[in-house]
Amino acid sequence: MLIFHLGLLPTSVFSLLAIVALVLSFVMLGSHWLKNHVYSFAAESWVIAFLSASVGYYGHYEELYFIAILTALFRGSLLPYLLLRLVDRLGIEREFTPLLKPASSMMIGAFLVIFAYGVAEALGRRLDLPSGIAVLALTCMFSLVLIGFLLMVLRSEAISHILGLLVIENGIFLGSQILVPGMPLLLELVILFDLLVIVMTFGILVRYLKVHAGATSSRALQKLVG
């Protein structure tokens, strides 16, 4: 496996990029302005694109360059553009009813990262993994998934829910680039495409919500219970 015989430089590059991606998700936790969320999501996607490219370079997986370009184009440019357009159309600039203050949500995020490290470390010990990069990749993957769920739970705007989901997907993608760079190309392509379709579907449904239900906040969507 690639990650078992890496030099010092590639290990540091991978670790740095993975940690930058994790830090960017804390930007989302700490800000209530929707545009900031979209920008940090875009930045995170670009970081992941660089990660794909560097895994491709050091591991000699040529097809990963292709994936990196697509990631930068789709996740890093097209999706943020669509989301920004949606934010403008709906005229919502920020979350007005956050459940917790930024500081408290970042604290919870920090605890989630520690929990993710605990799980990754335990898994690494059972597997006798010789390198720390695998544990780091697992930690970043689990943390991003958990933080994505946290974003969905704490925020009530529909766009925030989309962004939370995208953070989860980014996390899984980041982890899979380091852990399983040999994952079939077809699968990665289809997942990228699937993500695009999902975001467009979300966009259509959010506009339906605005027109037919009169609200896009989950606090206002309380008609169906029991």
Partner: peptide, 17 residues
């Protein structure tokens, strides 16, 4: 209808997550 759009939204968010 307001209810059916709300249902569709909740459906796709929860299931995708």
């Amino acid at each position: 209808e307001a209810e059916s759009v709300e249902a569709a939204w909740k459906y796709i968010v929860i299931v995708s997550a």
